[in-house]
Design a protein around this nucleic acid. Sequence first.
RNA 1: GGUGGCGUAGCCAAGUGGUAAGGCAGAGGUCUGCAAAACCUCUAUGCGCCAGUUCGAAUCUGGCCGCCACCUCCA
Length: 535
Amino acid sequence: MDLVVYNTLTRRKEVFQPLAAGGSQPVSVGDSQGSAAPVAGEKPLVRMYVCGVTVYDLCHLGHARTYVVWDMVRRYLEWRGYRVRYVQNFTDVDDKILKRALERGESMQAVAERFIAEYFQDMDRLNIKRADLYPRATQSLQAMFQLIQSLELKGFAYRVRDPIRHQIDPSSFRQAGHQPETPASVQYSVYYSVRKFPDYGQLSGRKLEEMEAGASGRVGEEGADKQDPFDFALWKAAPPSEPGFASPWGWGRPGWHIECSAMVRETLGDHIDIHAGGADLIFPHHENELAQSEPITGKPMAKYWMHNGFLNINGEKMSKSLGNFTTLRQALAIYHPMALRLFLLQTHYRSPIDLTEAAMQAASRGWETLQKGIHCAQQFCKGEKGSPEAEAMQAFQAAMDDDFGTPGALAVAFELAKELTREHNLFTHQGQTHLEPQALRQKSAALLEILATLGFCWPEVIGYEEIHLAAGSAFKVETVQTQIEAEQIEELIAQRSAARKAKNFSEADRIRDQLKALGITLIDQKDGTTRWLRE
RNA sequence: GGUGGCGUAGCCAAGUGGUAAGGCAGAGGUCUGCAAAACCUCUAUGCGCCAGUUCGAAUCUGGCCGCCACCUCCA
C-alpha cells in the first residue's frame, strides 16, 4: 500500500516516494512481525523543511495547528519506516522584531532570543518533537549573500541605489545599545525580477497578468523603486543608524523570502523532499522561495510542497484587529494540551478548522475518553508487550496513507479506547472480560502505538499491583499511594454494609463519602458485596 | 476583479460510484435504598438546491445558492 500526499505544486495527490530512495522500501503493516522497523541504516531518508515563526511575539493558535500538523506528518513518516531530517527555521531579523525591540528598548537579538525560548516552552507542551536543526536567518547571512550574488550574475536580480534615509529615530536604537555603523559610500537594495523567471506563479497557480488587477493601487511607497510591482526585495538597504548587517551591497537587512531559500539549501540541499508551511505562505513566500532557488540550482526546490489549512475562531479569521487573537498560552491555561492536539487532528490538515468553545469542550471530553483507554491499555499490556493488533494497525495505516487522514485514524483509536475501557470496567466490576488476555494486549498495544504516532503523550504509570483475570493470566494494575490501608477500607465497608442492612442510609452514605474523599470508589454489586477501587 | 477551497445529524467530522465511520452532546433502559461506575439500545430513507449520466450518486457532469481563504505582513 502506498502513502499518498497532496502536492500543492501539482494540485493533486501523488504517491510519496522520497528522492533518496536508497536502502529498503518503507515498512508496511504485515511486512514483518509486529511493529518492527527496518534497520536504522536502511531507512530511506526524507528531507523536510517547515517554515518557522518570526520571533517577535508569543505563538498563537494558528501556529499550534501548523506545528502540530507537521509534527504529525513527521512522526507518521518515521512510523512508516523513513528517516526524517526535519529542519525548521527561526526568522530572527524582521521589521516586526525591530519594532518590538524599539518598543522595549532592547536589541533585536534579545527579543528574538526571548521568543524562541517561549516558542519551545509552548511547543513542548503540545509534545512537538524538536527539529533536527533550527537555522536562524542571522546565522545564514553568508548563504544568502551567495544566493543573491548568483541571482545577480544570472540576471534575476537588480540593484537600486539607496539614498541614506532614516525611517526610525536613530536615537532610539542608540538607547537599545546599537552602535551606528560608519556609512558606506554607496549602498543598494537588491530586488528579484519576477519577469525574468518564466515559471513564476507555478506554485500558487497564478499568472502575473491576473494578479495585476488586484494589486493595482496597493503598491505603496515600498515598491517605489521596483521595476515591477511584483518584484520583491532580496536585500533591503538600511540606514547605518538602524540594526543591520554589512553586505556586498552595503548596510542593510535581508528580504524575508531569501532566508528560507538560503537555509533550505544550506541545511538540506538543492532538492528536498517536503517543503511545508501554512497555506498563507503559498503566495508570496513559497512562490518567491522557489523563484529564487530554482534558477540557481537548476533543480526543483522541493518534490512535494505541502500546506496546512487555517485555523479560524468562531468562524472568523484570527487577527489582532478582530480582537480574537488567542495565544497558545492563553488556550493552554484553559484546555489540556492533548485536548488541543486532539481538536487540531480531528480535522484533516488541509481543511480549515474552526475553533469554538463548544468544539474545544467536545475535544476535551474526547481526550478524557482516550485517556481512559490509554490507562486501561497500560494495565492490559504491562509486563508482556505484545505486538499491536494487525487489523487496527491496518485501518490506521489506510487512513493515514491517504494524505494523512487523521480523523479516520482517530476513529480507530476511539474504537479501541472505548473497547478497552469497556473490557477493563467489566473486569473491575465483574472480575472477568469478554476478550482473551492476548487480544486485550494486542488491542492495547495498537492503541498506544497509534496515539504515540499521532504525537499524543501521557504519563507513565508509576507502580503496579498484580491482578488476575478469571482466565488465570496476570495483569498489573496501577496503584496510587494513599494514606489509607486496605484493611481500613475493608473495615469501613463492613461498617457501611451493616448500616445499609439496618437501613441507616445516611450513615452508609457518610462512609461512602469519606472513602470517596480518600480516592476510594465503592461499587455495590448485585450479590450484596462491595468492591472498591482506588482512583 | 482573479485564484483556490468548502457546504454530510444538535455540534465536530470521515466517506470521492454500491446503498451514510468515529467523536461530543442527547434520549430510553438494566442495575441501585439512593448513588457511583458500568452495560445495552436508540438518534441523517438523508449528504446546500435543481437537473443530468448510471442498474445504482453524498460520491461523476452542468447550473444555481450560500460560506471561506489567498491575491498586502501573516502558520
